[in-house]
Amino acid sequence: MSKNILNRSNKGSVRRIGIGFAVVLIVMAVVSIAIGAFSSLGYGESFRIVFGSFYVLFLPGFIWSYVFFQKTKAFEEGENRFGNEGDKVAIDWIERVALSFALSIAIVPLVVFYLNLIGVKINVFNSFFSILGIITVGLAVAYWRNRKFNS
């Protein structure tokens, strides 16, 4: 019985994440088109800026924020910090968004710097795969920690 409930809630959160991701992609596409239409930048350039910023400056930190903080809490819960064990791994949305930028601008240059130190050149190709690596490792650790937390 409890296993079923857990499965259902996991499926629900996966669906929510999927819908959220699709909405974000659509919003970004609309913003890119708007920038392309109303500024001196071309469409290619505006898509590169919007999607590139998301990929480089937000996504790695966003995923790693789930490694450290599995729960996102609502506004009303804000003031009552660390009342129980769950609060220690919970932050609200404003904190998560800000943390996503902060962690991205911390993790990405650190990884790029240390890779550069061992001879990996800084270019678009290498940086893309370095960031993909950061995201993949983050996803794996977040998944593992989430399972551990739920159990």
């Binding site: 590139g52 480089v56 240059p109 790029v112 710097f113 550069n116 800084i122």
Partner: peptide, 28 residues
Amino acid sequence: LKNMDNWILSGGMEPGFLYLMEIFKLVF
């Protein structure tokens, strides 16, 4: 990071900032 001028190496710009900007340059 490419030119490595002495005034940069001796404190004109910190390395962490330059690496951060290398990433930003990929996008902007």
